[in-house]
Amino acid sequence: MTAPLENLETQLEMFIENVRQIRIIVADFQPQGQNVLNQKIQTMVFGLQEIDKLKSQVQDVHVPLEVFDYIDQGRNPQLYTKDCIEKALTKNEQVKGKIDAYRKFKAHLLVELSSVFPNELAKYRAIRGDERPSS
């Protein structure tokens, strides 16, 4: 069984191809072409029916609205994906840097506090359980 998105893509491609053929027929219309045109129009209606049927299968597909802006501006939507990935990676690196810095700070603080307040730190560790300076 084909994936719902692939199915929809195929249907849309067929629909577009049908419309393209209608445009060719209409561009320089010949009287004998009326029957073919009528068939093509009916095919277009069937195509719309098929696409309408497929909408239930793609209900769970969420598209970010920003992608539409890219498409409306005639830009490649893959650029949006690229931008998102790069932003996510940058943010991930920033957060990792922060977490590492805080971890080091905590370890260093515990070392320093234990040298200045050894008794208090011993009590603190007793309460916290597993708090050990990991320098």
């Binding site: 890219y70 498409i71 005639g74 830009r75 490649n76 939507p77 893959q78 650029l79 994906t81 690229k82 990935i85 790069e86 990676l89």
Partner: peptide, 16 residues
Amino acid sequence: YCKFSGKKLKEQLSSF
């Protein structure tokens, strides 16, 4: 990530 960061994507929608 490798797919999008490695190659230079074409700007136009028609290339998609």
